[in-house]
Write a protein that binds this DNA or RNA. Sequence first.
DNA 1: ATGGTTGCAACGCAA
Length: 257
Amino acid sequence: MAFKVATWNVNSLRVRLPHVMDWLDKVKPDVLSLQETKVPDESFPVDEIKQLGYEVVYSGQKAYNGVAILSKQKGEDVHVNIPSLEDLQRRVLAITVGDVRVFNLYVPNGQCVDSDKYHYKLKWLQALTLFLKEQLTLYPKVVVMGDFNIAPQDIDVHDPVEWQGQVLCTEPERAAFNELLSLGFQDCFRLQTQPENSFSWWDYRLNAFKRNRGMRIDHILATEALASQCIQCGIDKSPRGLERPSDHTPVFAEFVT
DNA sequence: ATGGTTGCAACGCAA
């Protein structure tokens, strides 16, 4: 049996709903994690998603942030937020699908290194790491996916020199990412050989997508029990070329079970 | 040349 998961920062679910529906219909993942839904729970488009045969859980707010998990099979043990962290921003959602615990993350962007938001990002990542460490004792098969807002290595950046020391690429952010990995996760994208210059996000400005001036900041991490069963992981660039696209594009991984 | 684009929601903020 194959189990396909995917993650996509849609930058407003209202605006991107047609893209999401088309993509679900084409790819038919078992689980799709969405970030930046930017929709309060009371106006979440439940019916449209259910019509496509997907169950959905969501944690949203007005205007900013917001996460959702769509799944063919109904998710169990829904969890919201990081318990130790006082946070009004809706950025974390988890469900169990079969024997897999799925975490959906929208890691804070951080804006720039001298901002409070960068501090908040690092604090947030630290709290997340403690939380996941705990969770790993409860679930052997864990997938953590989402918009990490971190390019883990220079090969994940179109121009590492230009980006050196900038937010998304700083040493503390990369250290936090590696700290997560060291809990027992693999970066599924790097389990197989990948094309050079593979990115998941491109700035809207200056024709960044056309020039492939992007970064790989959306990730799928899996514990060894799952990573050893990962048969493919990739980035589907096609939605980024559509009319009125999100600035991110889906990342997917497939496991045999 | 230090720009530019998008979404939200209300003309600035966040990305």
